[in-house]
Deep mutational scan, measured.
Amino acid sequence: KELVLALYDYQEKSPREVTMKKGDILTLLNSTNKDWWKVEVNGRQGAVPAAYVKKL
């Protein structure tokens, strides 16, 4: 499985998103959308802005 690093804090704004903190390591589930990537963090799945994460 592919991992990404959170470059910034992000507070979810809808139920389809997830909150992450700078430095979090997230499991990347889907990166086909260039703006929003689906990730899993702390057992929750949701979208985060692609510009806020970097593939490891």
Rank of each mutant, 00 (worst) to 15 (best):
E2H: 12
E2W: 13
L3T: 08
V4C: 14
V4L: 11
L5A: 06
L5T: 07
A6P: 00
A6F: 03
L7M: 11
L7K: 05
L7G: 01
L7D: 02
L7E: 03
L7C: 12
D9K: 02
D9Q: 03
D9R: 02
Y10E: 00
Y10Q: 01
Q11T: 14
E12Q: 14
E12C: 14
E12R: 13
E12M: 13
K13F: 06
K13V: 08
S14K: 07
P15E: 12
P15A: 12
P15C: 13
R16V: 11
R16H: 15
R16T: 14
R16S: 14
E17F: 06
E17S: 07
E17I: 04
E17W: 03
V18T: 06
M20K: 00
M20F: 13
M20E: 01
K21T: 10
K22T: 07
K22R: 12
K22C: 09
G23N: 06
G23I: 00
G23Y: 04
G23A: 02
D24Q: 13
D24T: 07
I25E: 03
I25Q: 04
I25Y: 06
I25C: 08
L26Y: 11
L26S: 01
T27I: 15
T27P: 12
L28K: 00
L28C: 07
L28E: 00
L28I: 05
L28Q: 00
L29V: 12
N30I: 08
S31A: 13
T32I: 11
T32V: 10
T32Y: 10
T32A: 13
K34M: 10
K34G: 10
K34L: 09
K34V: 10
D35C: 13
D35L: 13
D35V: 14
D35N: 13
D35E: 12
W36M: 06
W36G: 02
W36S: 03
W37K: 01
K38N: 13
K38C: 15
V39D: 01
V39H: 01
E40W: 07
E40V: 08
V41R: 13
V41N: 13
V41C: 12
N42T: 04
G43N: 08
G43A: 04
R44M: 08
G46N: 02
A47D: 15
V48W: 03
P49I: 03
P49Y: 04
A50H: 03
A50M: 05
A50K: 07
A51D: 10
Y52T: 08
V53W: 00
V53I: 08
V53L: 15
V53P: 02
K54A: 13
K55C: 11
K55G: 05
L56N: 04
L56K: 03
